[in-house]
């Protein structure tokens, strides 16, 4: 069963659009949350203006990681030269699936990173003396929240680079199985990252908030944040395992 190269190109462009389109939604929302927190903080504590502004800028730059990943995947889909005619249905499915995985996969993590940064800005306004430590904690919390987006990036890169071309003599049933397995892998890791990303973002946001209220307990709060985030991460790891199995073991 042949597939001409135009259809593979259609799949690649569709995947690129889905990836960066979905990925931009919550990146924007997250940056807005951080800027909102910063504005509120400046209103409450105008003397700490410089510190709040710095925290806000750094938080916004760090919260855009998932959006940048989505952009990398869409650029690779457009210019990477994957549209070879011998790829067949397999190639079309992997290209579409890579876009879906990274697009949906950046929804949760950016939202979580944005919430965490917003709380950190308010917290710096409440306790400017501990601003540096709160900023470090914010960066760690955002990094934890974006771990699941990195899983999505990993699956997208694997789908792009390490899947085989379609063999010549192969039955339609086998093609269907493999194609839908690729799409299923993209959906699994894509939806699987939304929950953990948003949840860990909530943990990090609460930790930042409490660090501003009770700065004496900061090491204990940080340890609890790490423990809770590591356990919330487990469902994202299950999704990663299922996606691996769907790509390589079917």
């Amino acid at each position: 069963m042949e597939l001409s190269v135009e259809y593979i190109r259609i799949a690649a462009y569709l995947g690129a659009g889905i990836s960066v389109g979905l990925g931009a939604i919550t990146t924007g929302v997250g940056s807005g949350l951080i800027a909102g927190g910063g504005s509120l903080g400046v209103m409450k504590q105008p003397q700490a203006n410089d510190q709040i502004f710095r925290t806000m800028l750094i938080g916004q730059a760090a919260s855009q990681t998932a959006g940048i990943f989505a952009l990398v995947i869409s650029m690779l889909l457009i210019y990477g030269g994957f549209d070879t005619p011998e790829g067949g249905w397999f190639k079309a499915a992997t290209l579409l699936s890579a876009g879906i995985a990274m697009g949906i996969g950046s929804l949760g993590p950016s939202l979580g990173a944005g919430y965490s940064g917003g709380e950190a800005c308010k917290s710096v306004a409440r306790m400017p003396k501990h601003g540096n430590f709160i900023m470090g904690n914010m960066l760690i919390g955002q990094a934890l929240a974006q771990t699941s987006a990195i899983f999505a990036l990993l699956i997208s890169l694997l789908l792009l680079y390490s899947t085989p071309n379609q063999p010549v003599d192969i039955s339609i049933g086998r093609i269907l199985i493999k194609t839908l397995a690729f799409i299923g892998a993209g959906l699994a890791i894509g939806f699987g990252t939304i929950g953990p990303g948003a949840g860990i973002g909530y943990v990090a946001g609460k930790a930042n908030d409490m660090m501003g209220r009770f700065p004496k307990e900061k090491s204990r709060i940080m340890r609890t944040m790490f423990l809770g985030a590591a356990i919330s991460q487990s469902t994202a790891i299950y999704s990663l395992v299922i996606a691996f199995l769907l790509i390589f073991a079917v």
Binding site: A181, A188, I189, G195, G199, Y202, M225, S239, I242, A243
Partner: peptide, 29 residues
């Protein structure tokens, strides 16, 4: 299988995050 694991990870992730966030708050207080 893919959709099952994807959607199934949505709820527990948010829920566990909420639990851990509240625990952070409690430990601080």
């Amino acid at each position: 299988a893919g959709m099952c694991m994807g959607m199934g990870a949505l709820g527990p992730g948010v829920g566990e995050g909420f639990v851990a966030g509240k625990a952070c708050e409690g430990i601080a207080r």
